[in-house]
Computed example of a mutant assay.
Amino acid sequence: MELVKRYIYAVTHKLPEAQRADIEKELHGLIEDMLEERIQGGEPTEKDVEEVLLELGHPRKLADQYRGYKQYLISPALFPTYVSILKVVLFAIGIAMTAVFGIETFMDPANVLDHFVGNLFSFINACFQGFTWVTVVFGFIDYAGVRKEKLGIKEDASWKPSELPPLPDSRTRISRADPIASIIFTILFTVLFTFSIGLLGIWRFPSEGSSIVVPFFNEEVFRTFLPFIWALLAGSVLLDCAKFIFGRWTTKLIAADIVIHLLHFVLALAMFSDASIWNPDFLAQLADSGLAPIGSEAYELASSIWNRATESLLSLIGIVVAVQVIASVVKGYKIKDVC
Rank of each mutant, 00 (worst) to 15 (best):
G290P: 10
L113V: 13
L27M: 09
P280G: 12
G290V: 12
K154R: 15
N111D: 11
E300T: 12
N119F: 06
F193L: 08
G94K: 06
R176V: 01
W306N: 08
P179T: 01
G201E: 11
E155G: 06
I184M: 12
L286Q: 11
L78E: 08
M271C: 06
I39S: 01
G102V: 00
I141H: 08
H264M: 08
D240Q: 11
F101H: 03
L86W: 06
R223P: 04
S304T: 09
S304H: 07
I277D: 11
R20F: 08
E219H: 11
L73Q: 11
F91L: 04
R204I: 08
R38P: 01
D48L: 02
A242D: 01
L262S: 07
L86G: 03
P76Q: 15
V323G: 00
A92G: 04
D274F: 08
G145L: 08
E55P: 02
R176I: 04
V88H: 10
A284V: 14
D48E: 03
A255T: 12
I326G: 00
I124G: 05
L15G: 03
K25Y: 02
S170F: 13
G201H: 14
L56F: 12
S315P: 00
S312H: 07
R6L: 13
L263G: 01
S328T: 00
E17Q: 09
G102H: 03
W133A: 03
I260V: 13
V320F: 01
D33M: 06
Y66E: 11
A242Y: 09
G152V: 05
G318W: 00
F205S: 11
C339G: 07
S315I: 01
E300P: 07
L86N: 05
I31Y: 07
K160P: 05
K252Y: 13
I335A: 01
F272C: 02
N218D: 14
D178L: 07
Y69M: 07
T186P: 00
W249H: 07
A302Q: 11
V117T: 09
A181C: 03
M271E: 03
F265G: 01
F138K: 05
S312T: 12
E55Y: 15
L53D: 07
E55C: 04
D240P: 00
A10L: 07
I258Q: 03
T135V: 01
T45G: 15
A18N: 03
H28E: 15
D169C: 02
D48A: 02
A309L: 14
T135W: 15
D337S: 02
L233M: 13
R147M: 06
I103A: 13
V89Q: 01
E149H: 13
F106E: 04
E50Q: 13
V4H: 05
W230E: 06
A327I: 00
F131C: 04
L316P: 00
G209P: 08
N307V: 05
V259W: 14
Y9P: 05
A270C: 15
I23A: 06
S210Y: 12
L30V: 02
L263C: 09
Y333G: 07
F79I: 03
F246G: 02
E220W: 14
T310A: 03
C339M: 04
I229G: 03
N119A: 05
S75T: 14
A99Q: 14
F123T: 15
R173I: 06
L199M: 14
